[in-house]
Design a protein around this nucleic acid. Structure first.
Length: 274
DNA sequence: CCGATTTGACCGAA
DNA sequence: TTCGGTCAAATCGG
C-alpha cells in the first residue's frame, strides 16, 4: 500500500471516530436517554472501535512489513439484551456497522490436488455459491481468533474437477501459537536421489499434499530481503534449478508465514550435509 | 455440555 | 441492484 494513501485512510478513519465519539458524548450527556438509546449507543461504540482498529491496522501495515502486533478487538456477537423487554418477532437484529469488509491485507494462494493441510486449526464460518463457478467457496478463520486474537483466515474452493484441484487463498498471518499438526520430513527412498518429501501433518495421504524438495537449492533461495517476492522452489528433478512448476511454492516474503519459516528450518535441519 | 458446522439472512462494495 | 464476505441461530456430534 502506498504510504500516502494509507495515511489518508488513517486520517479518514480517525476523523470518523472523532465524529462518532462526539455523537456518543451528546447522547450520553443529553440525559433522558435511558433504555431507549442504549442499543444506539452500543452501536456507536462498536463503530468507534472499528475505526480505531482499522487505523491501527493501516498504520501497522504501512510502517512495517511485519505483522501487526495489534490484536484486533473482538466484536463478538455480544447482544444488547436489555432488561426484559425484547421483541420476540423474528425480526432480524440490526447488524449494521457490526463488521467491516476485509481489511486490505496481503493474500496468497495455493493450488493443491487435495485439501491442503497446513498445520493450523481452522473453523469454517461460511460457504457461498460463487457466480460462474461450479463449486462453492468455503470461508474459514483461525480457531484461535477469539482466544488469541489471531487474524488469519482462508478461503477454499474447488476449481477443477477431473484432476481435482483446490485453491486456498490465505488472508493475514497467524499470530497464534498453536500449530495443530507438526511438519514431517520424510525420506523417500523410492524417489530419485537427493530428493526429500516435505509433508504437512499426518493425513492419510501425506504424499499427495507434500512438496518435494531438492537439496541442490542453497539457503540463498529461501532467505530473501524483506518485501521481495520469495519463491521457494522445490524440485523433484535431479538437475539443479530444474523446477517443475507444480512444485513451486511461493508467497510474498513480507507475508511469509510461520509455515514457511518452519518449512525452511525443517528443511535445513533435515539435510544431512549440503 | 460445549465446540464445530450448516445455512439463510444480512452487510457493504462495486 | 448484484455479489461475495460475514454473522449467528439452529443443528450436529463427541
Amino acid at each position: 500500500m502506498e504510504f500516502s494513501s494509507g495515511r489518508k485512510r488513517v486520517i479518514d478513519e480517525l476523523t470518523r471516530g472523532r465524529e462518532l465519539i462526539d455523537h456518543l458524548r451528546i447522547m450520553l450527556n443529553g440525559g433522558g436517554g435511558g433504555a431507549l438509546e442504549q442499543p444506539l449507543a452500543e452501536g456507536l461504540v462498536d463503530k468507534i472501535l472499528d475505526t480505531f482498529n482499522e487505523s491501527l491496522s493501516i498504520l501497522s501495515s504501512t510502517e512495517s512489513d511485519e505483522v501487526s502486533q495489534v490484536p484486533a478487538m473482538n466484536f463478538d456477537g455480544r447482544k444488547s439484551e436489555g432488561s426484559g423487554e425484547s421483541c420476540k418477532t423474528s425480526l432480524p437484529k440490526d447488524r449494521r456497522g457490526r463488521y467491516k469488509r476485509r481489511r486490505t491485507s496481503e493474500t496468497w494462494t495455493k493450488d493443491t490436488p487435495t485439501l491442503y493441510e497446513d498445520g493450523h486449526a481452522w473453523r469454517k464460518y461460511g460457504q457461498k455459491v460463487i457466480l460462474n463457478a461450479q463449486h462453492p467457496r468455503s470461508y474459514l478463520r483461525c480457531t484461535h481468533k477469539y482466544d488469541q486474537g489471531c487474524q488469519a483466515s482462508k478461503q477454499v474452493q474447488k476449481i477443477q474437477d477431473d484432476p481435482p484441484l483446490y485453491r486456498t487463498t490465505y488472508h493475514g498471518l497467524h499470530t497464534c501459537k498453536n500449530l495443530f499438526k507438526p511438519f514431517q520430513i520424510i525420506m523417500d527412498s523410492t524417489a530419485r536421489d537427493s530428493s526429500l518429501i516435505l509433508s504437512f501433518g499426518s493425513s492419510p495421504e501425506p504424499v499427495s499434499s507434500a512438496m518435494e524438495i531438492n537439496r541442490s537449492f542453497s539457503s540463498a533461495d529461501y532467505f530473501m530481503p524483506p518485501s521481495d517476492h520469495l519463491t521457494a522452489a522445490f524440485s523433484s528433478g535431479a538437475d539443479h534449478g530444474d523446477v517443475i512448476s507444480s512444485d513451486i511454492y511461493s508467497c510474498t516474503a513480507s507475508t511469509h508465514s510461520m509455515e514457511t519459516d518452519m518449512m525452511v528450518e525443517s528443511l535445513f535441519d533435515s539435510l544431512p550435509e549440503l
